[in-house]
């Protein structure tokens, strides 16, 4: 028997909403994630600021609710949430520790172009043009841009002549 989708009745900024997990996923399709300052939720393998997600789904002004409210609502719908492990104001972890975690996280972006900043994947795109366009639109500066290798050929130099 198919599982009944979970509907959560939530009140945000005084407005009641009936939200389904599938509604959130659908609403975020084709939407570029904005830069993450501290908290994020994972929707469709991508990290979004919680306020962006709730703003997109409900149409509410983001000034009307807090990041905490948004995150709690999305977690109740079953989305995983997290916090950036490094922000410019916090002590920077050793490079090896950063990259251990980053290399594992890069696996989900195999074949995509990624922009890396500190310990985070700032954004991923199908093309380098789309990636740099996103950086420019959001006033972001990456530390590094590359495609996560999908095979040995992409991962190696193979000595061009």
């Amino acid at each position: 028997m198919p599982e009944k989708p979970v509907v959560r009745r939530v009140t945000i900024a005084g407005h009641p909403f009936d939200l389904r997990r599938s509604d959130v996923v659908r609403a975020l399709r084709g939407v570029d994630p904005e830069p993450i300052t501290r908290h994020f939720v994972v929707v469709g393998s991508r990290r979004f600021p919680p306020k962006q997600v709730i703003g997109q789904v409900t149409g509410l002004d983001r000034a009307d609710f807090t990041s905490h409210q948004a995150r709690r609502t999305l977690m109740r719908l079953g989305f995983s949430a997290g916090r950036r492990s490094y922000t410019p104001s916090s002590p920077q972890p050793r490079a090896a520790e950063q990259h251990d975690r980053l290399a594992d996280r890069l696996r989900e972006f195999t074949g995509e172009w990624v922009a890396i900043k500190d310990d985070d994947v700032l954004h991923a795109s199908d093309s380098p043009q789309a990636l740099v366009g996103w950086l420019a639109r959001h006033g972001q500066k990456a530390d590094s841009v590359f495609r996560v290798p999908e095979d040995d050929l992409a991962a190696s130099g193979l000595a061009p002549l």
């Binding site: 380098p128 990636l131 740099v132 950086l135 990456a142 590094s144 061009p160």
Partner: peptide, 23 residues
């Protein structure tokens, strides 16, 4: 292009610097 530094492999087998045309 400061917003998007290109990750490059140091490759002593390559005779020169090679980048994709997209760069």
């Amino acid at each position: 292009l400061e917003i998007a530094p290109q990750a490059c492999l140091i490759d002593s087998g390559a005779t020169a610097v090679r980048l994709g045309a997209h760069v």
